[in-house]
Design a protein around this nucleic acid. Sequence first.
DNA 1: CGATGAATTCAACGGTAGATGAATTCTGAG
DNA 2: CTCAGAATTCATCTACCGTTGAATTCATCG
Lengths: 203, 203
Amino acid sequence: MVRRSGRRPGNQDTRTSILEAARASFAEKGYDKASIRGIAGDAGVDPALVHHYFGNKEKLFLAVMNAPINPGELIPQALSGPRDQAGERLIRLALTVWDSPAGAAALAVFRSALSNEWTARLLREFVVTQILRRAAGEIIDDPAEAPMRTALVATQIAGTMVARYVLRVEPLASAEPEVLVAAIGPNIQRFLTEPLPEVFKQP
Amino acid sequence: MVRRSGRRPGNQDTRTSILEAARASFAEKGYDKASIRGIAGDAGVDPALVHHYFGNKEKLFLAVMNAPINPGELIPQALSGPRDQAGERLIRLALTVWDSPAGAAALAVFRSALSNEWTARLLREFVVTQILRRAAGEIIDDPAEAPMRTALVATQIAGTMVARYVLRVEPLASAEPEVLVAAIGPNIQRFLTEPLPEVFKQP
DNA sequence: CGATGAATTCAACGGTAGATGAATTCTGAG
DNA sequence: CTCAGAATTCATCTACCGTTGAATTCATCG
């Protein structure tokens, strides 16, 4: 690569500090209520600089989400293992990710999806293609039941995320992850493998 | 040229048409994104008229919610009956309310609570004082376990509402209520009455 | 009829938002 | 040192927002 004349991209500190401020702000307020002006303020920077680096708010959001969300390894790891403990492994994976540093990005996507249409589509596609489709093939026996079973699993996991991280309902918000794994895992397991009610068995 | 200014004959029910437009708009967009200007537009009315009738946006929201949300009869009815079917009755009650005309108001409160602090407080107080506290006394044996059990129940019900009514995930959104009652009820029952994991039994 | 007052609209204020393009500062290559 | 070009800022534009007060119309009462 030929070095062209001019200032080197040496000071990319500000670029990442914008990204950090954006991640925190999106996680705390969701896509709509997080403002570029506020993010720029948190990063100690002029709002126009955000546009200079990221183009617009949508691209900034995507840039924030691109880095940390990479479930290539985690998901298969959560799916392998005793089939009758898959429920526990799924909820444990969710809690582990959300309590980790990358959890801010996950919370940002989730919170945004609850109040914004295009981020909701983003989340749906991500969940469907990256998580549920794999889980369906690995764990659920009858393919015809997979959509309903995975959707039911999604209700329990989404509800846990809403209560613990969005609404911060006690004692859930302060509970140890393993407590929730032990309490919620079996219910997810039931959605995965136990017989569905007969009323569902009609096309 | 039609003069559009000033009092127009006949229409005495503009107040209710504002309320209807507001209920629909709050349910669809939540408190923050629903605008008084948009509501007034849907009602075919000047925005200032909304203020004339309801004072401000907060009071309009409360006026919309005041009428249909009156759980005085429904809740006791859902709690009375065989104890081992309380889970099914709870999720059935939720689905019944949300699928009824009053459901728009419930959805408005819920959706707003997910992205707005003071509506979240409103929902929490309502849920705690009107629903959970009664359920705790009637169904849960050990009072010490009541907070965790009711919170777990809340995760499953809130998750169902999020998936079915907010994110509109299929096949949940189109499922018959009784299918969901049969599928989800037993899991709520488990949160209510089956033993909690030992890991929880330490203060 | 004229007066009253409620129903309704108009125009405007102050605020925040995302976005844009020109102007300025800085830095390193030649 | 010079100077191009990247980094950064400034001043604005447009578009909504909730809210307000004054102005208009009109049904009704005396």
